[in-house]
């Protein structure tokens, strides 16, 4: 079974953009072990694409900015995580991209600049 076949099976496991348990169980029961591992891995990757992980210094910030995030990531499952180390701003992880708007990152960059330019 080729990679394309596995991807087609993954697409077929969804009903109206949601994962269908019955379809998944049926497909899983028909696949041999090696193909099943690839199918599960591909399913996880597909599910990951539907999620957005947002780290913010205080959970209360999200409540004020909820609509903004929903507008930027429509139809996505938004997971919020509190991380006080960020100090200000946010860190957004979507698929394999990370967008770091935090004050922690700015200060780290500043420290790197000092390290690189001064003994």
């Amino acid at each position: 079974m080729t990679k394309k076949d596995i991807k087609d099976l993954v697409q077929a496991s969804y009903t109206k953009k949601n994962l269908d348990d019955k379809k998944v169980n049926k497909i899983a029961s028909l696949l041999p072990r090696s193909e099943l591992k690839k199918y599960i891995k591909e399913l996880k990757m597909q599910e990951d694409k539907k999620k957005v992980h947002i780290a913010i210094p205080r959970a209360s910030i999200y409540n004020k900015s909820k609509q903004l995030f929903l507008d930027i990531f429509p139809d996505k499952d938004i997971h919020i995580e509190e991380n006080k180390l960020l100090m200000l701003g946010a860190k957004i992880k979507y698929a394999d991209m990370v967008y770091d708007f935090s004050l922690e990152r700015k200060l780290d960059d500043f420290l790197d600049f000092i390290d690189e330019n001064y003994d």
């Binding site: 394999d96 991209m97 967008y99 708007f101 990152r105």
Partner: peptide, 12 residues
Amino acid sequence: RLSTDPKVENIG
């Protein structure tokens, strides 16, 4: 001159 642009990283 610190920019307000985010640091974008590609992770794997």
